[in-house]
Design a protein around this nucleic acid. Structure first.
Length: 677
RNA sequence: GCGCCCGUAGCUCAAUUGGAUAGAGCGUCGGCCUCCGGAGCCGAAGGCUACAGGUUCGAGUCCUGUCGGGCGCACCA
């Protein structure tokens, strides 16, 4: 934990600048990490920034500042570099002692309540790798925010009234002609989410057979929306399907160490009249209006402002060109009275921000790993023991970039109602989609189509194949996890013959989760992932299992220390004061104990950076780099077999610290460290 | 047509709010287990950061334009 030291240095330096140059306003400057330890532990490029206003060479400024800077506790040396950097060297012993013992107080926490909504899979089929990226990003976002002290509420939106659910109902009802009881039976005796996966792709084909078939969807959709207190078969069927699929999704996510606080059902938004309230407000403010002519006659619509482009982040948008094009409008309520998804989501966002003036009813849905409670909205009676949900100061909606347009509309609506700050704090956590490599699509039985591609065909000319739930084209998360787990378990069995089959499977599944979650996090958000099975199945190089392996090795050192010398981690950490610190002096070499321990201490800084940029690849790369550093150290310097006792103890302490910090970093990514692997 | 994203080693990607010599993994080639676990370590080769201008002490990063690829712009979500 390096932030406290950075802050100290920043303050001391700002004071020095004020004193030395009589500047009232010290420009913003950052504290960086020099490229090598030989150049120091902290670096400040502030001399470059001052050069212009002071009309002096950066080098001269750095030298003056080094002189002007009084002693800083914990800093042994300040070195003005020839190029103008100011490099600082830490008192290594003083830095490490409290850190390896976790005695450094956490920085002041950010306490404003934050909601992270992620996963939100249509409850009509099995979850696939596209959903996986969403959940992996969302879950990590929640963990990272919590790490720095932010109160976080994780919500999973369940669109139980949407077109996709309607489609699967149509599948059971109009294609398979199933009764409610038959569907219940299927749900109880099959892998239901897989069953629906196949059925869903058949529905798409069925719609294409006859224009009349489309009418079935509209009928079901309307019935779901206006169910009220009535209990039509359609509604009952929908309830059964949604409930079973939601539970399947939760089970899949639980395998990945992903849990939630609240399931928000779209149905409850309708039944509790959330939409009606939002509708009144929107109407009253003129944000939406009834279109009376043109092809949208009879719909309640929202005007799409040119300024929506601003919401997306583009500046310099041209002013609206009068007369060039009719104003574009987004349908909020269809002409048949059914509210679109965006209308209901609007009400949901209002609620999340505490702007709606109404609350859901809640019921306990179940218990997740570690005893964490899962709650669900309901329109029935509410549980008085339910925690306070909603009313957040910040909202993150984890949704892929294809929905940017809709998210911009939500933001526009908030501003139209005078909630500019809420719009600002309602953040679309956007990321690119996951597609399939041609090789993987082929493995799934989809041949690329030469020449002009028809609907449902895989285009050979495109560099990737788009995942499509509609076509049933995609890799299911559970299949992928099974594949990875089997492979890992076999490897574990080979390396640990004394393990039981259960142990192999348990560790194998931990490794599988590491592989897949790391894979999803190592790319930056803006990068489209072309998913290739072969690549995802790798356990070598920059992969989750490599990171686990490094941590397991560190574990083993302490197992052996205990076994051979009856020395515990606490023993090692407890006796450090008395030791000589030769081991910590290394002239800035690359793979030493100091290099590893210092890097390990940077976790809090990395987390801050990650939260600022919402870029988790930074966390993944940091953890990987740390593991690499340790691996090199491990090969170079013996620990158990080191003869010089003081060096040995310090090395062991460094290993303990490394293990602790890497384990925390992995935890932020939802990855566990097995005791052996 | 308009908006957004992407273009960095053979391939897949990093590169801290603009900062020190553009770094990893995979692949290729060559080394390393009598010694804490080889899911590992060490080394080599591999780059006009798509292109052209501009801003800056400093540009892979910011601005303008061009080219290439992707995604959006539904009474789907």
């Amino acid at each position: 934990m390096i932030l406290s030291v950075q802050r100290l240095v920043h303050r001391a330096l700002a004071d020095a600048i004020r004193r030395q140059y009589g500047l009232a306003d010290v420009p913003h400057f950052s504290i960086e990490v020099p490229p090598t330890r030989a150049l120091g532990d902290l670096a400040v490029p502030v001399a470059f920034q001052l050069a212009r206003t002071l009309r002096k060479a950066p080098r001269a400024i750095a030298q003056e500042l080094a002189q002007a800077l009084g002693p800083i506790p914990g800093v042994t040396r300040v070195e003005p570099a020839p190029n103008g950097y100011l490099n600082l060297y830490l008192d290594r012993r003083a830095y490490l002692l409290p850190r390896v013992r976790q005695q450094v107080a956490a920085e002041a926490a950010a306490t404003e309540k934050t909601i992270v909504e992620h996963t939100a899979i249509n409850p009509n089929k099995a979850a696939h790798i596209g959903h996986l990226r969403n959940a992996a990003l969302g879950d990590t976002l929640g963990r990272v925010l919590r790490f720095r002290g932010t109160p976080v509420e994780i919500q999973n939106y369940i669109d139980d009234l949407g077109v996709q659910v309607a489609d699967i109902i149509v599948g059971f009802h109009d294609i398979e002609h199933r009764s409610l009881d038959e569907v219940r039976h299927i749900a109880g005796t099959t892998r239901f989410d897989y069953y629906c996966w196949d059925l869903y792709s058949r529905v798409t084909g069925w719609y294409d057979e006859s224009p009349n078939h489309q009418a079935a969807r509209a009928r079901v959709l309307h019935e779901l929306e206006h169910a009220g207190a009535g209990n039509s078969d359609t509604v009952a069927l929908g309830n059964v399907i949604v409930d079973r699929i939601v539970r399947a999704h939760l089970a899949t996510m639980a395998r990945l160490n992903i849990a939630y606080d609240l399931l928000t059902y779209e149905g409850d938004i309708v039944r509790l009249k959330f939409w009606a309230h939002a509708f009144e407000t929107l109407k009253a403010q003129g944000a939406i209006y009834l279109q009376t002519e043109g092809k949208l006659a009879g719909c309640w619509v929202m005007k799409i402002e040119e300024a929506a482009a601003d919401a997306i982040g583009a500046d310099g948008a041209e002013p609206a060109r009068p007369g060039e094009d009719e104003a574009r409008e987004k349908v909020i309520v269809r002409s048949n009275g059914v509210v679109t998804y965006i209308g209901k989501d609007l009400a949901n966002q209002f609620w999340k921000l505490g702007l709606l003036g109404h609350d859901f009813h809640y019921k306990r849905f179940g218990t997740q790993a570690g005893g964490r409670a899962l709650w669900s909205t309901t329109s029935g009676t509410t549980d008085p023991n339910a925690p306070a949900f909603g009313r957040a100061a910040w909202i993150y909606n984890v949704i892929d970039s294809r929905q940017m347009y809709l998210q911009a509309l939500l933001s526009q609506a908030l501003r139209a109602l005078g909630h500019a700050q809420e719009a600002e704090r309602s953040i679309h956590f956007s990321y690119e989609m996951v597609a399939l490599s041609h090789a993987t699509a082929r493995e799934l039985g989809y041949e690329p189509h030469e020449g002009p591609a028809g609907p449902g065909d895989v285009d050979a000319k495109k560099p990737f194949v788009e995942v499509s739930g509609r076509k049933g084209l995609g890799v299911k998360i559970d299949d992928l996890l099974d594949l990875l787990t089997n492979k890992a378990a076999a490897e574990v069995a080979k390396r640990n013959p004394e393990f039981s089959q259960d142990e192999c499977r348990r560790v194998g599944s931990q490794i599988a989760v590491a592989a897949i979650r790391y894979f999803m996090l190592k790319y930056s958000r803006g990068k489209l992932i072309v998913f290739d099975i072969e690549e995802a199945l790798s356990f070598e190089g920059e992969t989750g299992p490599y990171l686990q392996y490094a941590a397991v090795r560190a574990n083993n050192i302490f197992h052996k220390l205990q076994e051979r010398e009856h020395l515990s981690e606490a023993d090692v950490l407890g006796g450090l004061e008395a030791l000589s610190t030769e081991e910590l002096d290394d002239d800035g070499e690359a793979h030493t104990l100091w290099a590893v321990a210092f890097e390990a201490s940077r976790l809090d800084e990395v987390v801050e950076q990650v939260v600022r940029s919402l870029e988790f690849s930074g966390l993944a790369k940091y953890a990987f780099g740390l593991a690499q550093l340790f691996s090199a150290f491990y090969h170079r310097y013996p620990i158990l077999n080191e003869e010089q006792a003081d060096r040995k103890r310090w090395r062991a302490a460094g290993v303990a610290y490394f293990r602790m910090q890497l384990t925390r970093a992995l935890d932020l990514m939802g990855i566990e460290v097995p005791s052996r692997m």
